[in-house]
């Protein structure tokens, strides 16, 4: 089983890296881009013996306690059956 975790900056938290990327994208001539925000993506391989619910619980805990900083970031967990 595989889990995917997306960690993104909370709405309202300034993202200077996203801004710089946005600026470059515009300089290159790409149009219709309103905003770019940078985040992090994690792939976590899990033992096959876990149920989907157990896996979700475990990975959510890891996302909350390790992968994200609740002051500035949100996270989203997806569990993928292979």
């Amino acid at each position: 089983m595989k889990a995917k975790v997306y960690v993104t900056l909370k709405q309202g938290v300034l993202d200077p890296q996203g801004k710089a990327i946005h600026h470059s994208v515009e300089l290159l001539g790409f149009e219709n881009i309103q905003d770019i925000r940078q985040g992090k993506y994690f792939e976590i391989q899990l033992n096959g013996s876990l149920s989907k619910d157990e896996a979700e619980k475990l990975v959510t805990q890891i996302a909350k306690e390790v992968l994200s900083n609740p002051v500035i970031e949100d996270y989203k967990v997806e569990i993928e059956d292979l």
Binding site: V13, L14, P16, Q17, A20, N69, V71, I72
Partner: peptide
């Protein structure tokens, strides 16, 4: 301590 330290505004 409260708060967080993020990337400098000018990168």
């Amino acid at each position: 301590l409260p708060g967080a330290l993020i990337r400098n505004q000018n990168l």
